[in-house]
């Protein structure tokens, strides 16, 4: 089944104002750079973005914040972005901060058809406000619901034309769960290959979860914290 589209602009066909998007990545690691750039070009507005982080001021989802295309962010950690903080504190941007493990599991649940689950994370905190609490094994847990998206945008290292994906190192992060939870999932890959070139045992995201795939280009892969040690 061939899911290849020519590039990010075509991949975004049908994405309109007010939609909910999931965007893969952890920090700037494993983010769909090409598709984010195409979203800026497309100029769609009032987006709800579900992503672990919000990029930095001039890269990643920060680009969509600068252009004020995001109405609401659902994230776990947004510390590296001054424009984000400004928009949030001024009330221009709605923000829903949720624990990272709950975010991951809520995306997974969305893709897996599990409407809600109980987790201990956030019990007794702001996160638990308005949520059902139930004890299991004598310990309180809160009810968290699934997350699903109109479009999920993910980045993989390698993919085949049927949408099977392989991620590299920690660029995997949220991408596999988000790929499962999108009505339309767009995968951009560094290497687009023919079916059969990925060992079936090595597939991280089976192609059933991917509707559109293209080979990206000019990856910047910016490093947020370059930490090294000296050679002895």
């Amino acid at each position: 089944m061939n899911k290849v589209v020519s590039g990010p602009d075509v991949a975004l066909e049908g994405l309109t104002d007010g939609m909910t998007l999931m965007v893969g990545g952890f920090g700037l690691c494993g983010i769909p750079e090409n598709t984010i750039a195409a979203l800026v070009r497309k100029g769609v507005k009032n987006l709800t973005c579900i992503s672990n982080n919000a990029g930095v001021d001039d890269f990643g989802l920060g680009l969509l914040l600068q252009s004020k295309q995001i109405k609401k962010m659902i994230s776990s950690y947004v510390g590296e972005n001054a424009e984000f903080e400004r928009q949030m504190l001024s009330g221009e941007l709605e923000v829903d901060l949720i624990p990272q493990g709950s975010l991951a599991e809520r995306c997974r649940a969305g893709g897996a058809g599990i409407p809600a689950f109980f987790t201990p994370a956030g019990y007794g905190t702001e996160v638990a406000e308005g949520k059902e609490v139930r004890e299991f094994n004598g310990k309180p847990h809160i009810l968290e619901s699934w997350l699903r998206a109109d479009f999920a945008i993910v980045k993989a290292w390698k993919g085949d034309t049927s949408g099977n994906l392989v991620y590299k190192r920690t660029a995997r992060n949220f991408n596999p769960m988000m790929a499962m939870a999108g009505k339309i999932t767009i995968a951009e890959v560094e290497h687009l290959v023919k079916p059969g070139e990925i060992d079936p045992d090595a597939v991280h995201t089976p192609g059933i979860f991917v509707q559109r795939i293209f080979q990206g280009s000019n990856y910047e892969k910016r490093i947020e914290q370059r930490t090294v040690r000296k050679r002895m």
Partner: peptide, 10 residues
């Protein structure tokens, strides 16, 4: 300061 909880609550 609102940076978010990241994985700390989990």
């Amino acid at each position: 300061m609102v940076k978010g909880m990241g994985g700390a609550m989990d």
